[in-house]
Simulated assay, not measured.
Amino acid sequence: MTVQTNIADLVGANPGVLANLVLAKYRVNNSLISSGVAVTGPEVELLMSGGAQVQRLNFVNKVDTTAFNHSSDDFDEKGATGKITAEPYQALRIDANWGWAYTDLVKIITKYDIKSGTLAGAIPMYWSEVGENMAVASMKGALAKATTLTSGVVTDAFNPDAFIDAAATMDDPRAQKTLFVSRKTYAKLQKLQRNDFIAPSAANLNIGRFEGYNLIITEAFGDNKSVVATEGALVFATGVTPGLIPMEIIRDGNAGNGGGGEILRTRMSLVAGHPQGFSYTGPLKPSLVQLATASNWTKVAQDQFIGIRAVNHAA
Rank of each mutant, 00 (worst) to 15 (best):
N159A: 07
N159C: 06
P160A: 03
P160C: 05
D161Y: 15
D161I: 14
A162Y: 08
F163N: 00
I164G: 08
I164D: 01
I164S: 01
A166L: 05
A166Y: 06
A167W: 03
A167Q: 05
A168K: 09
T169P: 03
T169D: 05
T169V: 02
M170L: 13
D171N: 12
D171I: 10
D171R: 15
D172T: 10
D172V: 14
D172M: 11
D172P: 11
P173C: 06
P173T: 06
R174L: 11
R174I: 10
A175Y: 15
A175R: 10
A175G: 12
A175V: 11
A175H: 14
A175Q: 12
K177N: 06
T178P: 00
T178F: 02
L179A: 01
L179W: 01
L179S: 00
V181S: 03
V181D: 05
S182K: 00
S182W: 05
S182R: 04
S182N: 03
S182T: 07
R183T: 09
K184H: 14
K184M: 15
K184E: 11
K184F: 12
T185E: 11
Y186Q: 09
Y186P: 00
Y186R: 05
Y186M: 09
Y186V: 02
A187S: 08
A187N: 08
K188F: 13
K188Y: 08
L189D: 02
L189S: 01
L189P: 00
Q190R: 02
Q190A: 12
Q190M: 07
K191G: 15
K191N: 12
L192C: 11
L192G: 10
L192S: 13
Q193T: 14
Q193F: 13
N195L: 15
D196F: 02
D196Q: 03
F197W: 08
F197A: 09
F197M: 15
F197K: 12
I198K: 01
A199N: 11
A199F: 15
P200L: 14
P200E: 03
P200K: 10
S201A: 11
A202L: 14
A202G: 08
A203L: 12
A203H: 07
A203K: 09
N204E: 10
L205D: 14
L205H: 15
L205T: 15
N206C: 14
N206W: 13
N206H: 14
I207E: 09
I207N: 05
I207M: 08
G208Y: 01
R209Q: 13
F210L: 02
F210D: 00
F210V: 06
E211I: 05
E211K: 03
E211Y: 13
E211R: 04
E211V: 06
G212T: 09
G212V: 06
Y213T: 01
Y213S: 02
Y213E: 01
L215N: 00
L215V: 04
I216C: 00
I216D: 02
I216Y: 03
I217D: 11
I217P: 03
T218E: 13
T218L: 08
T218V: 07
E219R: 14
A220Q: 04
A220F: 12
F221R: 04
F221E: 01
F221T: 01
F221C: 02
F221H: 02
F221K: 01
G222N: 06
G222T: 03
D223L: 01
D223C: 11
N224R: 04
N224V: 10
N224Q: 09
